[in-house]
Design a protein around this nucleic acid. Structure first.
Length: 587
RNA sequence: GGUCCCAUAGCUCAGUUGGAUAGAGCGACGGUUUCCUAAGCCGUAGGUCGCAGGUUCGAUUCCUGCUGGGAUCACCA
């Protein structure tokens, strides 16, 4: 048995992509006998490191062999060959705790990629951010934007081909209202920016309350838009351009990029075909003037056309799903949209299935909880948060966070170039806000709180960035620009704190794979916090014992430790990048 | 009322197909800077895992019911 950093044990279905875990599973399975496959074994970490490096429970095996788990564990511990990766095994009740050759593990870390390319050859479409035009990016847009971005990067890291889609809300009766509003009051807004557009929209909605006939007028405008009337189209295009330019500035701040930004309007000439397909399949029905499709186990039908004959949200999502399948032939198509639209997506996917598209099963709504305001602590500095007339903008939160961070950066790094200090403040401030939004489970509502959203200490983005910066600082101080990874003598890393870091690093790919599979970026976020904790504990040892510092006199030992620092720095930076944060060199 | 989501330390949250003594952060208290970044590290205190049943060798995890909170229920998106 020869351990090598290849991906020969890796398959998409495997629970673990940790190469050591895979090796151990194979060895344990071979020891138990022919009835057990390596894939059936769950290799995990023991609750405490003193117990061992890896643990395998014998529960599932016990059922198959009809023997009590502790008996099997005892036999495996005794018979498991101490060769290759495995250096020791001990039974602890139903568990077998295994120790591994640290040098082999470290060698793999230095040579291998942290994330195995288990998604190579597969395509995933991810629909995220997707704001409505003529409105600012409000604070709550951060969730779809950054969760979607993280999911895109997670899949990309695993080798998937990712199509990031910004499905902008640029179509529908709403935009008819905007045209109607501009027609009436446009002259009152000399600089037509996004604030003006939003004001026009709000004003029109208010006017509808007084005069319900305006609603019909808005429908009329949208009808003209759909018919391609020149004046309506030109105005609409202008509104769209203004909005997209505004969005782009915020996306640039966040480092978010899309592969396709055709919004709902992109599908206007693609809906007729979908409606025709529904017609051909005999799925269409008239109901209360509207055209609908009845769905199994659904209280309400899905609306295809209004009584005016105009298209609806669902019509466009059917057309876009079909377009995405035809254009990119995805293996997975994700919609990162808030939980309030669960019913809508369930209906759209059911409708696709009803149309006979088996790939409807590849479409998945990735819901997330709402951002709430009005928690008790949001009062003073929050200003108009949530309750006021003024929208609570994403930019406002970023500005506040950056403003808070900048003096800390300049204080701690007095010799730092002003421009770099400003950039670092931007990275750290925005990083704090972004991290606060990806660290909780997707499904949970988050109650906005200034202190929590901008936390700089504890389980926070800046803590991770700080740890990465410490790695950079050590490498900088050591003054060896060339990589140490290839030549390091790993056997010199004998301290448990060093091993704790290495052991944690082995799990990196596992967590990326799990986070992508379950569409839960917080799995990676929490992993990175654990990693940063291990690293910080290791670095702190050097405070009392200079011999444990990375930079020591012995050149071989220093090189080995620097190599581990290099892998850590790489892992932290990669993880942060996936979550949408930058890793500064200094902070 | 129907459907769906949530409930774990004072607060905010983790807890990987059911498995070893349920873990972090914040807040509180106490240590730690002649030490590669103290945005750090260590310690103390803090839990009937909402309630009641069920499944099993074993349930915070799976099932049912209940309580409490949230989302949603056709011509907006």
């Amino acid at each position: 048995m020869c351990f090598s950093p290849s991906n020969r044990y890796i398959s998409p279905e495997m629970a673990s992509v940790n190469p050591c875990a895979a090796e151990i599973a194979a060895a344990v399975a071979a020891t138990i006998g022919p009835d057990v496959r390596a894939e059936d074994l769950k290799v995990e970490a023991p609750p405490r490191p003193e117990l061992g490096d890896f643990a395998v429970g014998m529960f599932a095996v016990a059922k198959a062999l009809r023997q009590p788990p502790p008996a099997i564990a005892a036999r495996v511990a005794a018979e498991l060959p101490r060769t290759g990766l495995v250096t020791g095994a001990e039974a602890a009740g139903p568990f077998v705790n295994i120790r591994v050759d640290r040098v082999w593990a470290l060698r793999w870390l230095a040579a291998g990629e942290l994330v195995p390319p288990i998604g190579r050859g597969k395509v995933v479409c991810i629909d995220y951010s997707s704001p409505n035009i003529s409105k600012h990016l409000a604070y709550h847009h951060i969730r779809s934007t950054m969760l979607g971005h993280a999911l895109a990067e997670l899949h990309r890291a695993l080798g998937w081909t990712v199509i990031g889609i910004n499905h902008v809300g640029d179509w529908g009766t709403t935009h008819g209202m905007l045209l109607g509003a501009f027609q009436r009051w446009g002259g009152e807004y000399p600089t037509l920016d996004i604030t003006a557009l939003n004001a026009l929209y709000v004003r029109y909605r208010a006017a509808i309350e007084q005069d319900p006939s305006l609603e019909a007028e808005a429908r009329g405008w949208f009808k003209r838009l759909e018919l391609g009337e020149h004046e309506a189209r030109a105005l609409w295009q202008r509104f769209r351009d203004i909005s997209m330019a505004e969005f782009q500035e915020v996306y640039d701040l966040l480092g978010v990029k899309f592969d396709f930004d055709g919004g709902e309007s992109f599908y206007e000439d693609k809906m007729a075909e979908v409606v025709a397909m529904l017609e051909t399949k005999g799925l269409l029905e008239q109901s209360e003037g509207a055209t609908v499709v009845r769905l199994p186990d659904e209280k309400n039908p899905i609306l295809i056309k209004t009584k005016d004959g105009t298209s609806l949200y669902a019509t466009r999502d059917l057309a876009s799903a079909l377009y995405r399948k035809r254009t990119w032939n995805f293996d997975r198509s994700l919609y990162v949209v808030d939980r309030g639209q669960s019913t809508h997506f369930r209906q759209v996917f059911k409708c696709l299935a009803l149309m006979g598209f088996d790939w409807a099963a590849q479409c998945q709504h990735i819901p997330f909880g709402l951002v709430r305001f009005g928690g008790k602590k949001t009062s003073t500095r929050a200003g108009s948060t949530g309750t006021g007339d003024r929208p609570f903008l994403l930019r406002d939160v970023f500005d506040e966070a950056i403003e808070q961070v900048l003096p800390i950066i300049t204080e701690k790094n007095p010799d730092l170039d002003a421009e770099i200090a400003a950039r670092t403040a931007r990275w750290v401030g925005i990083g704090a806000v972004v991290f606060a939004n990806v660290v909780p489970q997707r499904d949970k509502d988050v109650d906005f709180d200034w202190d929590r959203a901008m936390a700089l200490s504890g389980d926070s983005g800046p803590y991770l960035q700080f740890t990465a910066a410490r790695c950079s600082g050590i490498a900088r101080k050591a003054g060896s620009p060339a990589s140490q990874r290839a030549t390091a003598d790993w056997s010199l890393l004998t301290h448990d704190a060093e091993w704790a870091v290495a052991r944690r690093l082995l799990d990196f790919g596992d967590h990326v794979a799990r986070a992508a599979a379950s569409c839960e970026p917080h799995i990676l976020a929490h992993y990175l916090l654990d990693l940063a904790g291990d690293v910080s504990r290791w670095f702190t040892l050097g405070n009392d014992e200079p011999a444990l510092r990375v930079i020591v006199d012995d050149p071989a030992l220093r090189a080995a430790r620097l190599a581990l620092v290099e892998v850590v720095r790489h892992a932290l930076a990669r993880g942060l990048q996936i979550l949408g944060l930058h890793a500064p060199e200094r902070m």
